[in-house]
Structure formats: structure tokens, C-alpha cells
Design a protein around this nucleic acid. Structure first.
Lengths: 227, 227
DNA sequence: CACCGATGTGTACAGTGTGAACATTCGGTT
DNA sequence: AACCGAATGTTCACACTGTACACATCGGTG
């Protein structure tokens, strides 16, 4: 009948997991140490045995989210045919970024809108950033992008999709109908790609990726619907 | 010797002004009701006679900031010659947006990163948004942009500059040297413009705007330096 | 002058993150 | 088996936040 063992087992990991649930809907502000502790049947200050302060926990949560996003980016890279492959790959990275932001607004905010704290964005968030730069490098290898244009191009691409995500989540596109947002997302990604490459892509090239759903990843449990 | 009159005079306006000062460096989180009240020599709860809650004050502060940004956008539109004028105008709007974000990160955050609250971004922030759409309409009038491409183009443009601002303020470009950021900002704006218009701009066209400093606006008092 | 609505004050409360001292348990050494 | 130190969790306390309520004070209008 020993109701609760004094030691939790792996409180650190449990906190991160609870942090993921807590922030999923409400973003960074929804993470309250006392709530997490209570949910795990543990004293409020127990948290401080594993994280120096609240932001440290938020960073750990963000790291988990970033890894998850990178996984989705790579999922999209499947099933594309020879010639356009490199461009489609870059396109997939961008669309995956936006799709993730829309499907998991809370988590996205934790990872990329750290609101005041020196979040993971300080140093490029390793996994998704790598997916982007590798896609760009691929274009160079394929001979479609000059290495002069390549330099720094990741910032231009990231700016566009990151900004679009911001407008959709916290901005004027928040109440925009989903299909319309879909179209705008594609146009944004295509526009920045065209601008970066210095070439205008033919319209028919775009249709290749069209049929693909926004998030070809098994969704976990309850997905918060976009209103 | 009546040290202090019981009534402040125009507390509402004074609160907005104090809010501007408070958020200038620290962003939305730096606005604390008690601090403002103390600074104005007034009780903490006096605030509630003029604003229903904290967020209402933040919204009022944001409105002031947005008006200020729009003013700067229009400043840039001066002194451009005939033919390229329309494109330069759009370019100015974008660069002004980014310049403002860099020069006044706190205020920019209040206006565009309302962090959780349903900020002014819900409905397009009137003044700067108007500057953008008018610049785009100008391109159509000039015959440089088809009206098909025009539709929704404001979102693509806004995404790019907004995202870039995000990367510079809270993101990986935070510790990037200013001149490098300048260059990236120009490339981002030019890339999205090219992508939106479906045409690649010639390199020499870019130099026209080069000499112009980042913020041709009289700076007020102490400008927070970029590290 | 008397009143009243607008504005500012005082007190109070629930909620937050966090620090310091203390309690408990686990793992390794003797 | 007995011990001890390091992890880990608890308890109490504090400063700080936004905000609700009742009361005080002013300026202007009947």
C-alpha cells in the first residue's frame, strides 16, 4: 500500500513530457511549474533539482519539439522523381515548417517564439536548420543554384516561412479559411524559392507536389483543430 | 504647496507614453502596471479607470507603435525617380519594416509579437498594412504586376520581412554583425519581390537604393544600440 | 448649495517563480 | 551488514504580479 514512492523515477523526462502537453495548446505561457509538479504528484520545488529555472525547462521542451519538426521535414522528402527532386526537396522543407506551425501552434511557439527568453533560436535549432541547409546544398550539387546565390540563402528561405507561420498563428491570417491558407503557403514558398534561385519556376512544376496532404505524418492523439 | 493634485490630468495618455518607454527595451513583458503607476505617482489600481485590463493598455501602446512605423515607411518613399519608382516604393516599405524592428525591438515586439494576447495583428494593423497594399496597388497601376499575381501578394511580402525581423530579433541572426544583416535584409526583400512579380530584377537596379541609410528618420533621444 | 459621475486610493487575495533549510532514498565503500 | 555522501523531493517563506472590492476625493451641473 505504499501509495507513492518518494522518488519519482525519472522526473526530468516526465517534466519534459508534461511540458509538451501543457504547451501544446497554450504556447510558452501555458507552462507553469506548479501545474506540472502537481500533475506529476510532486512538490513544486522538485523541479529545481532537474532544471535551474523555468526557462531551462522550456529550452528542454523546445529541443524535443525541434527534433519532432525535423523528423516531419524529412518525411516529406520521400517519393520525388529525378530532375526536380532538389527543388521539391526545398519546397517540402518549407511546407513542412508551415504545416507544423499550423498543426501544433503551441509547440511551434515554444520552439520559435520563445518570447523574451534566449531560446534555442539563438544558436540555429540544429535539426530543422540542418534539413534546410542540406536541401539548399543539394540544389548547388545539382547545378541549379550558383554557390554565390547559395551563401546565406537559408536566411531568406527561413524568413519567408517563419514569417508566414507568424501571420497565420498570431497574425491577420489567423481567421483565414484553411484552404486559402494552403494556397498562400504554397505561393509564399514558391515565391521565395524563385527569388532565391533567380529563376521563375514554371507553373506545371508546382503541380507535382500538389496532391500531397499537408502533413503526411501519423498524427498523435487529439489534434487541435484550426478554427 | 499642494504637492500633488488628486487627479492626474490625463492619466490615460500618460500611461500609454509610459508604456512606450517601458516596452522600448524589454518588449511586452517589460510592461508592469505597478511600475507605470509608480512612475506616474499614482496608485496601482488607478490604471483600471482607463483600461479594463493589462492587455487593453498593451493594445493601446501597440496602436501608437504601429502609427509610428507607418510614418517611417512613408518617409522612405521620398526621392525616387520615375520608372522604377513603384518597385522602389515596395522595397522601401519592406526595408523600413525591418529597420524599425531592428532599431526598436521592444516596440516591434509589442506591435507584432503580442505573445499570447489577441493583439492588433488579428485585424491587419491599419497604418503599416495600408502602406504595403498601396505600394502593391501602385505596381498594378504601373503595369508591372498582373492583377492575378497581385491578389494576396501582401501576405507573401509581409511574411518575408516579418520572418526576417523575427530571425534578427529573437533568432539566429541576433548576434550577426550589422552590415551583414543589412545585406541579408536587402536580399530578402529583393528575393520576395522578385518571387512575387515573377521577374528577376537586374542587379544594377538594386544599387539605386543603396546609399540610403537604414533609418532616415530623426532618432529620438537614446537609441538602444544593437550589440 | 447639493448632488453625481469620473477619477484615484487602500486593502486584500490568488497566483506566479524562486531561495534556503530540512528529509528521504539510493548506490557504492568499508 | 553498516555506513556515508550524493541525488532527489519537501516545507516554509518571500517578493512580485494582475486584479476585485469598498471607500475617498475631485470637477462640473442641477
Amino acid at each position: 500500500m505504499d501509495a507513492k514512492p518518494y522518488h519519482h523515477g525519472d522526473l526530468r523526462q516526465a517534466l519534459i513530457q508534461a511540458g509538451l502537453e501543457a504547451t501544446r495548446l497554450g504556447g510558452p505561457d501555458a507552462l507553469r511549474l506548479r501545474d506540472l509538479a502537481r500533475a506529476l504528484g510532486v512538490s513544486a520545488n522538485a523541479v529545481y533539482r532537474h532544471f535551474e529555472h523555468r526557462d531551462a525547462l522550456l529550452d528542454a521542451v523546445a529541443a524535443e519539439i525541434l527534433a519532432s519538426l525535423a523528423r516531419e521535414m524529412r518525411m516529406r522528402e520521400a517519393g520525388q522523381f529525378a530532375h526536380d527532386r532538389a527543388i521539391q526537396r526545398l519546397r517540402s522543407v518549407g511546407l513542412a515548417y508551415i504545416a507544423f506551425a499550423r498543426r501544433e501552434p503551441g509547440w511551434f511557439s515554444v520552439a520559435f517564439f520563445g518570447a523574451g527568453r534566449d531560446g534555442l533560436l539563438a544558436t540555429p535549432p540544429a535539426p530543422p536548420y540542418a534539413a534546410l541547409t542540406e536541401a539548399l546544398d543539394d540544389l548547388v550539387r545539382e547545378g541549379v543554384l550558383s554557390s554565390e546565390r547559395r551563401s546565406g540563402a537559408q536566411w531568406l528561405c527561413w524568413s519567408a516561412v517563419h514569417g508566414f507561420a507568424g501571420l497565420v498563428l498570431h497574425g491577420p491570417l489567423r481567421h483565414c479559411a484553411a484552404p486559402e491558407v494552403d494556397r498562400l503557403a504554397e505561393r509564399t514558398v514558391d515565391a521565395i524559392i524563385a527569388g532565391v534561385m533567380g529563376t521563375v519556376r514554371r507553373a506545371d512544376a508546382r503541380r507535382a507536389d500538389r496532391g500531397m496532404p499537408d502533413a503526411p505524418v501519423q498524427r498523435s492523439a487529439s489534434e487541435p483543430a484550426m478554427p
